[in-house]
């Protein structure tokens, strides 16, 4: 072992089915708020796993941003805010910290699924789970589109900034129009290209599709599924018993 290896994080690539299971577990847990300290610990543990996985897939920056946001919100909530806090700023802060702590774990896991799963992989996993093709295609496009929308929106925002159309300047309706319409334009044309590409690749044909990547549940997949199942059960026990 040489010295540079200390910072290297092992690359873990999970099966899409494992990721979907994780999303399912985290989303279910997000519905229930943590009431006891143990439940809080479990909740934080469940948030940490997808963060680490994001790191291992080379998405360190987004993992860092998510982690920082979560930590700040958590600390603020624990030490500065209480249910008795009043006043506009405090109420606002409480609200935002509440939503971050409550929903961010689901967002992180969903983002992890979106950013680290290839469409081919995802469709193949859907096929293996016997999800109807139509629903699988729609879901895949939906998933794939969030990063695209984010990128396109960034471009539009820059363009609008150059023209001096900014948040708070002028009418709200204008603001919506100048942002939403270009976004729709670019998304529709991307959608057309996507359909053309998909049809070229035989999507929506009558034959069963084969996949270039063979999916296989490995040891680490099973380990993580088991871990999440245990965490979920432990969380429910910690909350209700």
């Amino acid at each position: 072992m040489d010295t540079t290896i200390t910072l290297k994080i092992p690359h873990i690539h999970l099966d899409p089915r494992t990721k979907l299971f994780m999303v399912f577990v985290v989303s279910s847990i997000v519905l229930m708020t943590a009431t006891t300290p143990l439940a809080w610990v479990l909740r934080i543990m469940i948030t940490l796993v997808p963060l680490l996985l994001l790191f291992s897939e080379g998405r360190g920056i987004s993992a860092l941003c998510f982690g920082l946001l979560y930590t700040v919100a958590l600390l603020l909530m624990k030490f500065f805010l209480s249910t008795q806090s009043t006043g506009v700023v405090m109420a606002l802060l409480t609200g935002y910290c509440g939503i971050v702590v409550q929903f961010l774990p689901a967002m992180i896991t969903a983002w992890y699924l979106i950013r680290t799963t290839q469409i081919g992989e995802f469709l193949s996993a859907m096929q293996k789970m016997h999800i109807p093709d139509g629903l699988a295609i729609s879901l895949a496009v939906l998933m794939r589109f969030f990063p695209t929308i984010k990128e396109e929106y960034g471009g539009i925002r820059d363009a609008m900034k150059m023209r001096g159309i900014m948040l708070g300047g002028g009418h709200a309706s204008k603001m919506i129009e100048y942002r939403l319409i270009p976004l729709l334009f670019s998304c529709v044309s991307i959608g057309d290209e996507l359909s053309a590409a998909a049809i070229t690749r035989g999507l929506g044909g009558n034959k069963k599709r084969s996949s270039a990547t063979e999916l296989k549940l490995t040891g680490i997949d099973l380990l993580l599924m088991a871990l999440f199942a245990i965490l979920a059960v432990a969380f429910i026990i910690a909350k209700y018993l």
């Binding site: 609200g95 729709l184 529709v188 929506g204």
Partner: peptide, 27 residues
């Protein structure tokens, strides 16, 4: 396939609208 892609695309757009509006709810 084209129809399914259209559905996925517009659902994503609708969700973005919902999400942007939803953020205001915490005011």
């Amino acid at each position: 396939a084209k129809d399914f892609i259209t559905v996925g695309l517009f659902t994503a757009l609708l969700f973005v609208v919902e999400f942007a509006c939803g953020m205001l709810g915490y005011l």
